[in-house]
Design a protein around this nucleic acid. Structure first.
Lengths: 350, 350
DNA sequence: GTGAAAGCGCTAACAG
DNA sequence: CTGTTAGCGCTTTCAC
């Protein structure tokens, strides 16, 4: 395998009979003055010899790094896939690359990634935290790391946050179900180990209370396994399992709300297996509005969390901060939206 | 914002009263001999002062880079999300990071990424090519870049390939449908711009021919838009649109095969909208076996393409090659598997 | 306008 | 065993 030698600015300099400083100035688009004809000649030579800049050299010198990191639970969750797509869109436009790290809900892994990213001189990270180790985070931030957190709050000064009004989302979901005449409502959720999950439940219950209702006995179902090993189908299986429990109840709920769409798919699936018609017999509602929620039958009524936009926003804020653009505020709060499709039906009488 | 200075091996050296060479030797786990007590003292000091190695410095010196790149059409396709997860799993275990690049089916973007990855001194890339610009690729490979290609072949020496027997997969799909008594079969596909798509069709037709059948008039439906702008729902919408055409036929097919699961979801969805029962009236079959194919109703019968394993394999081969482990063969061919679920039914009489 | 030289953080001959 | 030195590819003062 004949491996060609890479050409550096010194090679170009030698060939052109100038100093490498000059070559650097033209090839790095420096604003420093270089005579027009020299500039052209160097550019020409660079082209001819297929000069490819070595960013490592540049980085070491300038201490600027054009890659950011993203740490999320798992890319196999379409919600995060969408966030990631938004992040990359902005990153690409601004000349950045993005390192993807799946923490698999493992706090240890998350910290390892944070550390190794920093070792690679990554200056900005977008994080959907699970461990929230604020000692490590604070230390790294003191050393210049910029952090934007999505999906939860982190009690560390200077972190940027893209927040989402989960509690309002939960409130909206319950309100919609109540409006459609439902009184006995089932609630199915993954473990409440993330603030977002707790907030949704909170908002949901608030809406019930406002209408003189509450989650009746057995209607609230939470996954028993505290820290699920993160397989791709955990949420789905969880939805199925908890729905089974709901169906064992003496009196079924007339509607079931799931903490996210993936879980709602499990609900839908289990109901279909039991020949329960949706929405005729039981209505189902999800949360997130991932792309697939429009693809299932019946199409899922859900609460939209703007995943793609969150990704774009997170990345914009991060890159602004990294380029010392003044960011107006450290927090942004995004709002939920009700997406009505066909999985929720009207219930005439209680 | 008080930004602490980062501590380098020289700082540690000064504090310990030794040379930075010695510090480097212990902190980089060099096999070079250093007396035990000196070693311990340096390690202690490094810990106390929160020494964090600067990989950029190391990289520049050693010309070894612990990050690889992955270029795929879009992470919003769960198939690629799964591949990515497999890649990262292996990468992480071996101390690598992975840069994710979504080419969005855009050949220009793909080349840009290849180039900029190389500028960042990335030595290995996993590629699901669309453009297949072999000039660029050859040039980069001559400069030492290692490439593993999935989902298609690339006519460039030394590229590693993870292949999949698409044509056999197509053959298996058709065979299954025929076995279940179907004779008039609809075929729905995205544009045949990728070899994989052409191979599936080829295998499918071969099986039909082997049974004295063929795709009848109007039963073969391919997306008109040659190069779809890659939105996340393209495949789904495509499945819907083409199914509508199939339903306009004088005589419906009794089964519909889709080139991938996403498209099959569109088929399922459109049929449901038209009150066509699956599989009673029409059977549906997909390709890929993405996780969601088990979540739709009815659960989708499909051909499994081992996405996660492909990712792991691709990454293993790549890292082996990068560490000069001798790779036994440049190609690996993976085999399809039939996954029977509930979307295909028996048809008693033709 | 252009060049010489120092140095980013690290490793690896080479000397001792 | 430990230290001195050079240099990876690049940018950036500082001279001229």
């Amino acid at each position: 395998m004949p491996m060609n030698k890479r050409v550096t600015i010194h090679d170009i300099a030698r060939i052109a009979g100038v100093s490498s400083a000059t070559v650097s100035r033209v090839l790095s688009n420096s604003s420093y003055p270089v005579s027009e004809k020299l500039r052209e000649r160097i550019q020409q030579l660079a082209e001819e010899h297929h000069y490819i800049p070595n960013m490592i050299g540049k980085q070491l010198k300038t201490d600027r790094n054009m890659t950011i990191g993203v740490i999320i639970p798992t890319i196999s969750n379409p919600f995060y896939a969408s966030v990631m797509l938004g992040v990359e869109e902005i990153a690409r436009r601004r000349g950045y690359h993005v390192l993807l790290c799946n923490s698999l809900q493992d706090g240890k892994l998350e910290e390892d990634y944070l550390q190794t990213l920093f070792e690679k001189q990554v200056k900005g990270v977008i994080l959907s935290s699970i461990s929230g180790n604020s000692k490590l985070i604070s230390r790294l931030m003191k050393l210049g790391l910029q952090l934007v957190v999505i999906e939860q709050q982190l009690d560390v000064p200077d972190v940027l946050q893209i927040e989402f009004d989960y509690s309002r989302g939960g409130y909206m979901a319950a309100s919609h179900l109540i409006e459609q005449g439902h009184r006995r409502i089932g609630y199915v959720t993954a473990p409440l180990d993330r603030p977002s999950r707790r907030l949704i439940l909170q908002g949901f219950q608030e809406a019930l209370r406002a209408h003189g209702l509450s989650l009746e006995d057995g209607c609230y179902q939470v996954s028993e396994s505290e820290s699920p090993i993160y397989t791709g189908t955990f949420e789905f299986e969880n939805g199925k399992r908890l729905t089974r429990k709901l169906l064992e109840l003496q009196e079924h709920p007339t509607a079931i709300f799931a903490c996210n769409d993936l879980t709602a798919f499990g609900v839908l699936h289990e109901l279909a297996e039991h020949q329960v018609k949706v929405p005729d017999a039981i209505s189902v509602m999800g949360f997130d509005n991932i792309e697939f929620s429009q693809m299932v039958t019946p199409p899922l009524t859900t609460i939209k969390q703007p995943d793609y936009e969150m990704g774009k926003m997170a990345c914009s804020m991060l890159l602004d901060k990294l380029s010392d653009v003044t960011v107006d505020s450290l927090q942004v709060m995004l709002q939920p939206k009700l997406v009505v499709r066909e999985s929720v039906g009207k219930r005439s009488s209680g």
